[in-house]
């Protein structure tokens, strides 16, 4: 049971944005996708989310092509947090979260749905915003309410079967404390049996929370493995064009990546 991209190519006109990328997302694991701008990270996420058709290769969820799932069935197993949400109407924060429950039996109206929405608001530290209009929230608050929405969508789902949470830069507009809060929540989701794929820019956050890192560059998967395996100074210099030192800290949850003096040269 997994969400799998197999030898995927994506072309947009003459440009190839993904080239023979294969990636599997297994239960219980948090995979961080890292790479420089334009590496194809968001394209990979939208391929796995079924938004982007592949030119070659296929995407399977639990052994069946993603496109063959009924929309509602799929929505009970696969949730996506976009990088930027465009909600322009003044729903209350709790109403936004309840919308996440719509694929389920209660459709967002049952007591169970209310319980889940509440718990999701708690999990993202946004319960105090429940009665606020979405339009009056700051960027970071909106991001966390949207996360609560996708968490609510898959709430309790790991207990019932495999499910997949795709997060496109979930920490982008968050302060330090909330970056950790969000990733801890994502990790908790994985630990309860779900699968998480998150696009991250901060290698140290990725190293600390991810079980596995997938490094993309120029549309190719250049490395995949545990943070300790992947985060090598040579690979980082090659991929990001930054010279770094990688400090192993025994007992800590992952290595620490520190830019060296005069770290930046122009990327290839």
């Amino acid at each position: 049971m997994s969400l799998v991209a197999k030898d995927v190519d994506v072309r947009r006109g003459a440009r190839v944005t993904l080239r023979r990328v294969s990636l599997a997302l297994h239960p219980g694991e948090l995979v961080a996708v890292v790479g420089p701008n334009g590496a194809g990270k968001s394209t990979l996420l939208s391929v796995l989310a079924g938004e982007q058709a592949t030119s070659l290769g296929e995407v399977l969820m639990d052994g069946r092509p993603l496109a063959s799932w009924l929309p509602r069935e799929r929505a009970r197993r696969l949730a996506v947090l976009p990088q930027e949400a465009s909600l322009g109407f003044g729903f209350l924060a709790r109403e936004v979260v309840l919308l996440g429950r719509s694929p389920h039996l209660g459709g967002g109206t049952s007591g169970e749905d209310t319980r889940v929405a509440l718990a999701a608001l708690d999990a993202t530290g946004t319960r105090h915003l429940a009665e606020r209009s979405y339009l009056t929230l700051s960027g970071g608050e909106r991001q966390r309410v949207q996360l609560a929405r996708v968490l609510a969508q898959l709430w309790d789902a790991p207990a019932r079967g495999p499910c997949y949470l795709l997060l496109d830069e979930p920490t982008a507009s968050l302060d330090l404390a909330h970056q950790h809060l969000v990733l801890e929540e994502a990790l908790r989701f994985a630990q309860s049996g779900g699968s998480v794929l998150a696009i991250l820019h901060d290698l140290n956050l990725a190293a600390r929370y991810a079980h596995r890192l997938a490094v993309l560059a120029g549309g190719r998967l250049v490395a995949s493995g545990s943070p300790a395996e992947v985060l090598q100074p040579a690979l980082i210099a090659e991929t990001f064009g930054v010279r770094v030192e990688v400090l192993d800290r025994p007992g800590a949850p992952g290595p620490l990546v520190v830019p060296a003096a005069a770290a930046v040269r122009s990327p290839r």
């Binding site: 929309p71 465009s86 909600l87 729903f91 719509s102």
Partner: peptide, 20 residues
Amino acid sequence: GSRLNLLMLGEREARHLGVD
């Protein structure tokens, strides 16, 4: 009504919440 609520979130979001 309920499908329109989801659509207000955005077309992508509505699709991921099971709306055709």
